[in-house]
């Protein structure tokens, strides 16, 4: 196994921790009050080589999400001229009914509308280098944007091969079945429409600096 493959495998193994991460998220991620246990999954050394860090990332607070899914329609009507939740860069619908685990025999006690009412939005984490979607793209269609350094897809270059969707540890990249082009969060050039239009402040756009400060604050508080 090559060194590169091993590196990717290490990343992909994190996807097995994803559920664990989101469950911790359910315990209350609000604004900059991000817990250490969560931050360790997406903080990075600013000195990381390769793809530069994005300016920030969108975080979600399941405690304040009411499942209206305006984020999904705003994301796509504002950016694509069509309401298309399937390609929305923030995912809520798939967790709306039963949370991350889907319907179980005791669904009344699980997450989601049919359970304890907890709805978990999933935004793009704008992963640190090495960025899985960037790494696996066979035509180098994904790169850091000049303005926000968000990981963006060049629509003309994308061939719709779905490798990025298969390898995104957060499962938040989708190939649009109507255009055969990959769609992922590009932070709306610095003013994410989903955050701007969430009626209950369940989404927030956090600069990486604030994330780092939250870590320091957390440490300072012991």
């Amino acid at each position: 196994m090559s060194q590169e493959t091993q590196k990717k495998k290490g990343l992909f193994e994190r996807s097995t921790n994803r559920r664990q991460f989101l469950k911790m998220g359910c315990q209350g991620v609000a604004g900059a009050a991000v817990s250490m246990s969560i931050l360790k999954y997406f903080t990075s050394s600013p000195a990381a080589a390769g793809v530069p860090l994005a300016d920030g990332l969108i975080i979600a607070d399941p405690n304040q999400c009411t499942g209206c899914k305006r984020c999904e329609t705003v994301c796509t009507t504002f950016n694509d001229g069509k309401a298309h939740p399937y390609i929305s860069r923030v995912k809520v619908n798939r967790n709306y009914n039963y949370g991350l685990d889907g319907p179980r025999y005791n669904f009344q006690d699980g997450d989601g509308q049919f359970g304890n009412f907890k709805i978990i939005p999933e935004p793009c984490m704008q992963c640190e280098h090495p960025v899985p979607c960037v790494e696996v793209c066979p035509v180098d269609a994904i790169s850091a944007d000049d303005i926000t350094r968000a990981r963006v897809v060049d629509q003309e270059t994308c061939i719709g091969c779905t490798l990025c969707t298969q390898h995104c540890p957060w499962e938040v990249i989708t190939v649009d079945p109507e255009t055969n082009k990959d769609q992922k969060c590009f932070l709306c050039n610095g003013k994410p429409a989903c955050v701007d239009n969430c009626p209950t402040k369940a989404l927030d756009y956090i600069p990486w600096r604030d994330v780092a400060n939250a870590v320091k604050r957390h440490r300072a508080l012991g």
Binding site: V74, F78, G81, K82, A83, H84, Y86, P177, N197
Partner: peptide, 19 residues
């Protein structure tokens, strides 16, 4: 369940203004 979309046929800026 659906993977398709609903098209907003008119001007996108007008759509945003109405929203």
């Amino acid at each position: 369940k659906g993977t398709g979309s609903v098209l907003v046929a008119g001007d996108r800026e007008e759509w945003k203004q109405l929203d």
